[in-house]
């Protein structure tokens, strides 16, 4: 069984730990933060009674969805350009996408402070050029959060679309043109549907990664930019409340699993479409 080692590895190192934590969501916690192995629904009741948690979950979904949308809109033309490039350039371009990953995530995220801050690159340039007098408030708001989020997730989107586009049979596109389809028409009717699986896979990945980020909003966000993963972190670490943290994490995993289920249905439709057109 080819999948067995992979499955074994994930079961031992991901599933079991997660189950161990999930169990904690039903356990009691004493005032010093020590977990007592005694069944209780305290944490679940707290989660359900306080609308705050669902509110933040909704906020996080919105953040992840908008990030995904931006990534798709920005990433598609880039991936398409990569396909059109000669092989030698393409290799370099793909390599460049990975370049920022060599800088540790926190330092990379903090480098935006030097770009967007009041004395940062953008404001410095605009002021030198005489466009503005007072520095623009580019930092510690939604704008800077999206700048950081999209920067982090874009590579995943571009490469997934790129791989998707590679699978498109170019003869098919040319055939469509021969049959009289105009440039955009051929793209919309043939290329786009055929590259849909790649776009979907990229979107799923970006959505999940964006929903799970807590460092980016922590560094680039302003006052009140609290997201769901921040709550999990706060419960587990500073509050030393493992039961609540476990409850929040279980909800998070269940919601994302539902998103994947939805994706599987949509992707299923995508595959069907491809079979028809092929």
């Amino acid at each position: 069984m080819l999948a067995a080692p992979a499955v074994g590895c994930v079961v031992a190192f991901i599933l079991l730990p997660v189950l161990a934590m999930a169990l904690h969501s039903f356990w009691l916690r004493d005032p010093n933060g020590i977990v007592i192995q005694q069944f209780t629904l305290t944490s679940w009741r707290e989660f359900l009674d306080d609308p705050f948690y669902l509110e933040v979950l909704g906020r996080t979904g919105r953040l992840a969805a908008i990030t995904t949308l931006i990534c798709a809109l920005v990433g598609y033309p880039v991936a398409y350009t990569l396909i059109l490039m000669p092989d030698r350039f393409r290799a370099l371009m793909i390599l460049l996408l990975f370049l920022p990953s060599w800088i540790s995530f926190v330092v990379r995220t903090m480098s935006w402070l030097h770009v967007l801050g009041p004395g940062g690159l953008v404001n410095l340039l605009l002021r030198r050029m005489g466009v503005i007098e007072e520095p623009l408030p580019l930092l510690y708001n939604d704008f800077s959060i999206y700048v950081g989020m999209v920067h982090y997730t874009l590579t995943y989107m571009v490469l997934n679309i790129y791989i998707g586009l590679q699978s498109v049979d170019r003869n098919l596109v040319d055939a469509a043109r021969t049959l009289g389809a105009k440039g955009w028409h051929a793209f919309l009717e043939v290329t786009l549907p055929l590259s849909l699986p790649g776009l979907m896979a990229g979107s799923l990945l970006v959505f999940i990664l964006a929903a799970g980020t807590y460092i980016t909003p922590l560094i680039l966000g302003g006052t009140g930019n609290v997201y769901y993963s921040n709550l999990i972190y706060e419960a587990v670490i500073p509050q030393l409340d493992w039961p609540l943290g476990a409850t929040l994490a279980v909800v998070f995993i269940v919601v994302l699993t539902a998103v994947i289920g939805l994706y599987a249905r949509l992707a299923g439709v995508g595959t069907l479409f491809r079979k028809v057109s092929a």
Partner: peptide
């Protein structure tokens, strides 16, 4: 199951694996 590792907050896996 094989997609699960990216769904799970690393903090939870981190603590959970120590418990295991």
């Amino acid at each position: 199951l094989l997609t699960m590792p990216i769904l799970v907050p690393h903090l939870i896996v981190g603590v959970g694996l120590l418990l295991a």
